[in-house]
């Protein structure tokens, strides 16, 4: 089997080809790049930054995916507010449209939170990037619609997502969330997404055997 030596991990995760893309780690992603739409930039010029608190030491009231084996990782990566925002953004990205599972159906937020405890994802800067993006998303929602994202109706939320997808940094943020949604949809259920193989069943994917168990996940080899 031919394998290329030229693969780029960040390309797979984010990889916007829009002109101003440098990647969040290389560029030190800023809110200006994220909000790069003509309307938003004009509005932002005179407004102070308004970001939700980034509290990473929150409660432990979410069911942990079965593969959580590292006892040193924090129980919760996102605040309750951040999780609400992420849940609603994810529902825009993978909606309940009557054909296939929605983000909620595949445990999108719980999976994302668990994935943010993966050392490689942490090294990639993903948890911080996702948290920052939530703040910038709310900035744009307030500036253009007058309310934070989760207070908007479906149509206005859709409009906001469309708007941020027009900038490279915004597109990268959404792309990263999509990256983890595809994992929640199609990885083995042992990792907390794809409950009862709902993603596999929808896409008629035939799993291999033997499958990993909670004692034999990839983290048990690390």
């Amino acid at each position: 089997m031919l394998k290329s030596a030229s693969s780029l991990p960040h390309k797979a995760k984010q990889g916007s080809l829009k002109n101003d893309y440098q990647g969040p780690l290389a560029s030190g992603l800023n809110r200006r790049a994220f909000l790069k739409t003509s309307t938003a930039i004009a509005l932002l010029a005179g407004l102070p930054a308004c970001k939700p608190t980034q509290d990473v030491t929150k409660s432990n009231n979410n069911p942990a995916p079965s593969a959580t084996t590292n006892k040193d990782i924090p129980a919760s990566v996102f605040s309750d507010y951040q999780k609400k925002v992420l849940a609603q953004v994810q529902m825009q990205l993978l909606p309940d449209d009557g054909d296939g599972p929605s983000a909620q159906d595949i445990n999108g937020v719980d999976y994302l939170e668990w994935a943010m405890t993966d050392q490689q994802n942490i090294q990639d800067g993903d948890p911080d990037f996702i948290r920052k993006g939530i703040g910038w998303l709310d900035d744009l929602a307030v500036q253009t619609k007058g309310e934070v994202f989760i207070q908007l109706d479906q149509t206005n939320q859709h409009n906001i997502i469309e708007k941020i997808a027009g900038s490279s940094a915004g597109e990268n943020w959404l792309s990263l969330l999509m990256y983890y949604l595809t994992e929640a949809l199609l990885l083995d259920p042992v990792y907390g997404g794809n409950p009862d193989q709902i993603g596999w069943n929808w896409l008629e994917h035939q799993a291999g055997f033997p499958r990993p168990t909670s004692e034999t996940t990839y983290r048990d080899f690390e």
Partner: peptide, 29 residues
């Protein structure tokens, strides 16, 4: 098979714009 990698690659349309929402789901299906 590498379904997760396949699905992730499908999020980019032919013009290299991000696909999301129902359009993405239909492409996956």
């Amino acid at each position: 098979p590498s379904p997760t990698a396949d699905a992730n690659s499908l999020k980019w349309d032919d013009n290299n714009n991000l696909l999301w929402g129902s359009a993405f789901k239909q492409r996956l299906k």
